[in-house]
C-alpha cells in the first residue's frame, strides 16, 4: 500500500465509489442479459414443437 498521507480517506473513498458503481453496472448488465436470454430460450422452446408439429 502506498503512503497516501493526510488525503488517504479522500483517495480511498474515490476508488471505493468508482469501483462500487462500476461493479454494480457490470453485475446488473450481466444479470439482465442472463434473465432475458433465459426467457427467450423458454419461449422459443415452447414455439418449437408447434412449428415442427
Amino acid at each position: 500500500m502506498p503512503e497516501l498521507g493526510p488525503y488517504a480517506g479522500e483517495v480511498l473513498s474515490a476508488y471505493a465509489v468508482a469501483f462500487g458503481l462500476l461493479g454494480a453496472l457490470v453485475i446488473v448488465s450481466l444479470w439482465k442479459s442472463a434473465r432475458v436470454r433465459r426467457a427467450l430460450d423458454e419461449i422459443e422452446a415452447r414455439r418449437e414443437p408447434r412449428r415442427n408439429g
Binding site: L25, V26, S29, L30, K32, S33, V36, R37, A39, L40, I43, E44, R47
Partner: peptide, 20 residues
C-alpha cells in the same frame, strides 16, 4: 464490452416482446 452485452440484451428483449 458493456455496450455489446447490453445491446445484445436489448435485441433479445425486442424479439422476446414480439414473440410474446
Amino acid at each position: 464490452t458493456l455496450l455489446l452485452i447490453r445491446t445484445r440484451t436489448e435485441i433479445r428483449a425486442r424479439r422476446l416482446m414480439a414473440l410474446k
